[in-house]
Amino acid sequence: MEDVSEAGIYARQSPYLERFVQVGVASGRVLRVSFPENPDDDADTGTDHPILERIFEYLDGVHEVAFDDVQVALTVPTDQRRVLETVRTIPYGEQVDVKALARMTPDLDPEDDDDVILVRTALDGNPAPILIPDHRVRDGPSAAPPAVEQKLRSLEEL
């Protein structure tokens, strides 16, 4: 894994997404991935960061890029963390639905309405789309803007 220990907010314009990709990093972990139309005022847009480099390799679509070795600081409740950790196991180019994701997540029942709501809540609150590929859950919400979600699905031919 690359050294991602340099704390800060890094952003780069994506022609494919038609907006910026912004990554917040602290203590060697990714705190957030977002897709603003304009980067935060304190974002570093002149320095390449290893995580941004990998995201842009992924967006180039030349080859599959895995992010399973990237540490994401999941500051969400434990039950939502389990869901998001399960989302990270969905392979590139594959998709599942919300009930299948509930079935895949330890201690969740896809037939329990509360568990299905939990899955949807976790997806909606995902702090790091792309790294936690919620766009691979076809009938669930994504934390990425709808236009970004659709482009990510198109990229993976989902």
Results as ranks from 00 to 15, higher is better:
137 V>M: 00
121 T>A: 14
108 L>I: 06
134 D>C: 03
120 R>P: 08
123 L>H: 03
67 F>E: 02
146 P>G: 01
110 P>E: 12
109 D>S: 15
108 L>Q: 02
86 T>S: 11
118 L>R: 14
150 Q>H: 10
127 P>G: 05
94 E>S: 13
64 E>H: 10
71 Q>A: 15
93 G>D: 10
68 D>K: 11
65 V>D: 09
132 I>V: 13
139 D>E: 05
104 M>T: 10
148 V>D: 08
74 L>K: 02
62 V>H: 13
109 D>A: 12
88 R>D: 02
62 V>S: 14
67 F>M: 01
130 I>T: 02
134 D>G: 12
140 G>D: 00
150 Q>T: 12
91 P>S: 03
90 I>M: 08
84 L>K: 05
99 K>C: 07
146 P>E: 04
133 P>N: 04
64 E>M: 06
115 D>P: 12
107 D>A: 15
117 I>R: 15
85 E>I: 06
119 V>C: 09
133 P>V: 01
138 R>M: 10
103 R>I: 09
107 D>H: 11
136 R>K: 01
147 A>R: 13
89 T>E: 10
59 L>S: 03
103 R>S: 14
81 R>D: 12
89 T>V: 08
143 A>F: 05
117 I>S: 15
113 D>R: 14
62 V>A: 13
143 A>H: 05
115 D>H: 13
147 A>E: 15
139 D>S: 06
99 K>I: 06
64 E>Q: 12
96 V>E: 05
125 G>A: 15
77 P>M: 00
111 E>W: 13
113 D>E: 14
78 T>F: 10
93 G>E: 07
150 Q>L: 13
129 P>G: 01
106 P>R: 15
73 A>D: 15
95 Q>W: 09
100 A>W: 11
79 D>H: 11
86 T>D: 04
136 R>W: 03
145 P>F: 02
144 A>Y: 07
69 D>V: 04
119 V>L: 07
87 V>G: 03
126 N>Q: 09
74 L>I: 04
78 T>C: 00
99 K>L: 09
128 A>Q: 07
74 L>N: 02
85 E>W: 00
62 V>N: 13
120 R>V: 09
79 D>K: 11
151 K>C: 06
139 D>F: 06
145 P>Y: 00
102 A>N: 11
85 E>T: 05
151 K>T: 11
142 S>I: 03
83 V>M: 02
118 L>Y: 10
103 R>D: 15
116 V>T: 10
133 P>A: 12
114 D>S: 14
77 P>W: 00
58 Y>W: 03
100 A>G: 10
76 V>T: 04
87 V>D: 01
79 D>W: 03
123 L>C: 08
73 A>E: 14
81 R>M: 06
103 R>N: 12
